[in-house]
Each structure stands twice: as structure tokens, then as C-alpha cells.
């Protein structure tokens, strides 16, 4: 394993220190239990939006803390959900009296830990609501699985709900909006090479020189199918089709297309893939109204990509366009 680290057991804490130094105008890192909070938290009278999850997906979530997006992020160890303490600490620091919305990616660990924290906060009379995002169409949502995973759609959800909270929507309205986003967003990912978790020291799965893993998660979990490597056309089509079928997205739909690098795939390739996805969508009469391209929901240095489609309407588009000021996403005044 080759990494720019000191000790696998202190990677997250040391990285958070660098994050805080790099973005002290935006965020503060509270140590023990570790939480990244908006520098001006709590914002009085605003619904606080809190997310979190294992580390290793940067810039999600710490890089998404700031005005117009998250009030706090709870970073767990690499690929391991945070503990209820962290979530509780986050809630305490950001609760501005208008309630707290927890955005949880649908993994057993994340759900259970956030659930425990929510119960404890409610016992302290903080109004807490939870939204679980499960946009990954690679996983069948059935009795036979833990349900779909939360992946790329999380960033879109956090941006849109963050904007709603910033404009003053109350907790119930934020929850209703979040449910609308979750209902209209779908993702699918693939990998050409596995990431290496620092405390494991070897790649999370082994892929042959001619293989790719399709339907991959963001934690180095193997995907649903191992296939021969394909070219960009084939890869993009294989990601897009199950997404389109699932919702389904149909002719005339207005969408946000999010082409995400899993970390190790360079922008040169990512833009190439994005161009193909745009063409395939245009061919079907689906209107790409907004786009996001880059490494936003990563899996350490995993080579690969994911596509996410979100069905837009005027309100969602307006909230997407609303100002945001975070380390990773920044636009508007």
C-alpha cells in the first residue's frame, strides 16, 4: 500500500485538521467526537441540515459544509459510519431552534447509528427528522437486501435541501422536499480498480487486468457483476440504461446529470464519459438542464465512475441554482 499518510489509525483526524486549516472561513472541526460544523453555527431560526458517513468519500461530506448546504458533517473512520455520539454532538452544535434534518445514506451501519442519535436527541426535546437516501439502482430494493444504497444522489439532495433550509423552509417542508428528491434521483456506478483502505493495506477487491466491476458501491464493496472491460460507450450505456428504466425517466423529462469520478478516474476521461451520457440522453429526448461533473462522491483512489440522474422541476432547478459556499461546491453570491 502506498499512501501519503502517517499512521492508518490517525488518518481521519489528521485529514480533518488539514481540512479546517484549508477552509477556516467556512468550517470548524470539533474534535472528540469529530464533527465538521459551519463556522457560523448555529444559525438561529434555520433548519439545520446534518449528514455524515464513513470517511474516504471526500469532498462528501466535510467539503459540503457551508452556507446553502450542510450545517454539519459527521466523519466516521474510513468507510465506517460515524457513531451516535458524533451525530449527537453535531446536532447540539448546529441546532438553531428550527429543528434538525439528518440526511442518512442507506447502509445498515449509517441508519442504525443515526437512528440511535435521533432517539437520544428527541429525548432532549430537539426536533429531529431523518431522511434516508437510497438512489443506487445496482441494488434491488427487496426483502432480500438491506435496500438500495445511498450514493451520488446524496450530494444533489444535500445541495437542494440545504438551499431550502437557507431560504427559510421549516422542517416539515424540508422533509417533504427531501422526499421528493429521493423519489426522483437514481444512480449507478462502476470500477476499473479497487481502492485501498489504509487500515486494510490491500485493495478492497481484486480485479483482473481485463475485468471491471459494475454496480459497485462507494465502500469498496464488490459490485453485482464482474464483466470484461468495455470502452467508454459501453460503460456509459451500461450505467445509464438501468437508471433510465428504473424511475423511469422518459422523453421530455428535465434532468440534472451528475457524472461522478470515484476518485482515480481523471477529468479527461470523466468529461469524455459525460459527453457520451449527454448524447445518449439527447437521443431519448431527455433534456439535460443542469449538470455536475467531477469527483464529488469518491471511494478513495478507486478508478471508476458513476452516473446520477435527478428529475428536475422549476423549484428543484431554482434550489440547485441557489447560492452555495462550501469547499467543493461554490456559486452564486
Amino acid at each position: 500500500m502506498k499512501k501519503i499518510i502517517n499512521d492508518p489509525s490517525t488518518v481521519v483526524a489528521e485529514s480533518l485538521r488539514g481540512l479546517e486549516l484549508a477552509h477556516s472561513d467556512l468550517l470548524t472541526v470539533v474534535p472528540e467526537p469529530a464533527v465538521v460544523v459551519r463556522v457560523d453555527a448555529p444559525v438561529r431560526g434555520k433548519v439545520a441540515v446534518v449528514s455524515g458517513g464513513g470517511s474516504g468519500h471526500e469532498p462528501m461530506h466535510g467539503g459540503l459544509v457551508g452556507p446553502g448546504m450542510l450545517d454539519a458533517a459527521c466523519p466516521g473512520p474510513v468507510f465506517t459510519s460515524p457513531t451516535p455520539d458524533q451525530v449527537q454532538a453535531a446536532i447540539e452544535r448546529v441546532d438553531g431552534g428550527a429543528g434538525v434534518l439528518l440526511i442518512v445514506k442507506n447502509y445498515t451501519g449509517d441508519v442504525l447509528n443515526f437512528e440511535t442519535a435521533a432517539e437520544l436527541a428527541q429525548a432532549e426535546d430537539v426536533e429531529v427528522a431523518t431522511i434516508v437516501i437510497d438512489d443506487d439502482v445496482a441494488v434491488k430494493d427487496s426483502l432480500y437486501t438491506a435496500g438500495r444504497r445511498g450514493v451520488g444522489g446524496t450530494v444533489l439532495l444535500e445541495k437542494i435541501v440545504g438551499a431550502a433550509a437557507e431560504r427559510g423552509d421549516d422542517l416539515a417542508a424540508c422533509v417533504a422536499l427531501a422526499e421528493r428528491v429521493v423519489a426522483g434521483v437514481r444512480s449507478m456506478g462502476m470500477a476499473l480498480a479497487a481502492p485501498t483502505v489504509p487500515h486494510v493495506g490491500e485493495p478492497s477487491f481484486d480485479l483482473g487486468e481485463d475485468e471491471m466491476e459494475v454496480g459497485i458501491g462507494i465502500h469498496g464493496e464488490p459490485g453485482r457483476a464482474r464483466l470484461p472491460v468495455d470502452n467508454a460507450e459501453g460503460i456509459v450505456a451500461r450505467l445509464l440504461e438501468p437508471i433510465l428504466e428504473d424511475l423511469p425517466f422518459t422523453e421530455g423529462d428535465r434532468v440534472l446529470l451528475f457524472t461522478n469520478s470515484m476518485g482515480g478516474t481523471p477529468l479527461l476521461e470523466l468529461y469524455l464519459a459525460h459527453g457520451i451520457a449527454e448524447r445518449l440522453l439527447a437521443d431519448r429526448g431527455i433534456v439535460v438542464e443542469r449538470r455536475l461533473v467531477g469527483p464529488f462522491v469518491t471511494s478513495l483512489e478507486m478508478q471508476g465512475m458513476s452516473l446520477t440522474l435527478l428529475r428536475l422541476d422549476d423549484e428543484l432547478t431554482e434550489l440547485w441554482d441557489a447560492p452555495v459556499r462550501t469547499a467543493a461546491l461554490r456559486w452564486g453570491s
Binding site: P33, G76, P82, T83, P84, D85, T108
Partner: peptide, 14 residues
């Protein structure tokens, strides 16, 4: 365990 394990096993063993 609840406050240090995280993941699925933390809340479950906890």
C-alpha cells in the same frame, strides 16, 4: 462500543 465502533456492528453489539 456504541460510541467507538460505528458501522453496523457498533449499534448491534452495543
Amino acid at each position: 462500543l456504541i460510541s467507538t465502533v460505528g458501522g453496523a456492528a457498533g449499534p448491534l453489539y452495543g
